[in-house]
């Protein structure tokens, strides 16, 4: 979806879109205009110079667009023909329809007024680009959590969160200073400094069950603990997609082993259990042993029934 147009066409589209933007933002600075349209200032000056030569047939001062930009601020007159924004393209419509759907899932059900407007807008856009209503985007994040996170990020405040750690299967309360939201492997994480762990941590946003803004010491201690990593060796018995995705391996071959680094033995223990007969942990030996014991205990319970 990177621009598929040649340079002159790209430019034509920009020129046509500049006219309505300037018409509705008279006096905008050339600098800001360049930034909005993602070109440098000399290109913008050249665009405006070209537009200044355009107009209705005849091309006398009466028919040409009247552009002023010598002062560094741009005004336009005599440009009625082009002053309305161009119709949206199919892709632009798709982006808006999906964005509206995501927005719908983030708005409280009590705001029926807003939800109705979103539905109407979405239908109107879908009509404009002839799209059946078959697109959906939802946010899995709790509305209060997402509001607290964005408040904390905006005001550079700390947060008290209750966080569900998947591999410990525990809900813990932590004080954090959120730094930014990052995306990795399709999941959103809140990259933060965690005062509880005295270290930088990434929290999966969909696992934050509650969040409240809190004052924190803005200074992050320099001597943060270095977390140690462990290496495990895992042998593949049955190559499955679940195993490939869990251990982030692009290729799996029967009876070959791969090394995997982890911060947590608990995580590796649970991951091997969840993989069942598909893999076998070769090292470290103590984790290997604890898996055997756990599996035996569970097996005994099923057999005792």
């Amino acid at each position: 979806m990177v621009s598929k147009f040649s340079a002159p066409l790209e430019r034509t589209a920009r020129l046509l879109d500049l006219v309505p933007y300037i018409s509705s933002h008279q006096g905008i600075s050339l600098k800001e205009l360049a930034k909005l349209f993602k070109v440098d200032e000399s290109q913008m000056t050249s665009d405006l110079t070209t537009l200044w030569m355009c107009g209705l047939p005849g091309y006398t001062p009466l028919e040409l667009m009247d552009l002023n930009f010598e002062s560094g601020f741009v005004t336009i007159h005599n440009a009625e023909t082009l002053s309305k924004p161009r119709s949206i393209t199919f892709d632009e419509g798709v982006a808006l329809v999906l964005g509206l759907d995501l927005l719908r899932s983030a708005i409280s059900p009590e705001r029926k007024d807003l939800l109705e407007r979103i539905d109407l807008l979405s239908q109107r856009l879908a009509g404009l680009i002839k799209l059946p209503s078959a697109l959906s985007a939802t946010s899995v994040v709790n509305q209060e959590v997402s509001a607290a996170i964005s408040n904390a990020l905006k005001s550079r405040m700390g947060l008290e969160i209750s966080y569900h750690s998947l591999y410990r299967d525990e809900i813990s309360t932590r004080i954090i200073l959120p730094i930014e939201i990052v995306e990795s492997e399709g999941q959103l994480y809140l990259s933060s400094y965690c005062y509880t762990a005295s270290d930088f941590r990434q929290f999966r946003i969909d696992r934050i069950q509650g969040a409240a803004v809190q004052e924190v010491l803005q200074e992050i201690p320099k001597s943060s603990v270095q977390q140690s990593r462990y290496t495990c060796t895992i042998k593949v018995l049955t190559p499955t997609r679940a195993v490939a995705e869990r251990f982030k391996q692009s290729e799996l071959q029967v009876n070959t082993a791969f090394d995997f680094e982890t911060y947590s033995f608990q995580w590796i223990e649970r991951s091997i259990m969840a993989s069942g007969r598909a893999v076998c942990l070769q090292s470290p030996p103590d984790v290997r042993k604890s898996i055997a014991v756990m599996a035996q205990t569970m097996l005994d319970r099923y057999k005792a029934r």
Partner: peptide, 11 residues
């Protein structure tokens, strides 16, 4: 693409 749509909305 969404940015271009935004410019049109603003216009």
């Amino acid at each position: 693409v969404a940015q271009r749509a935004l410019l049109k909305l603003r216009s």
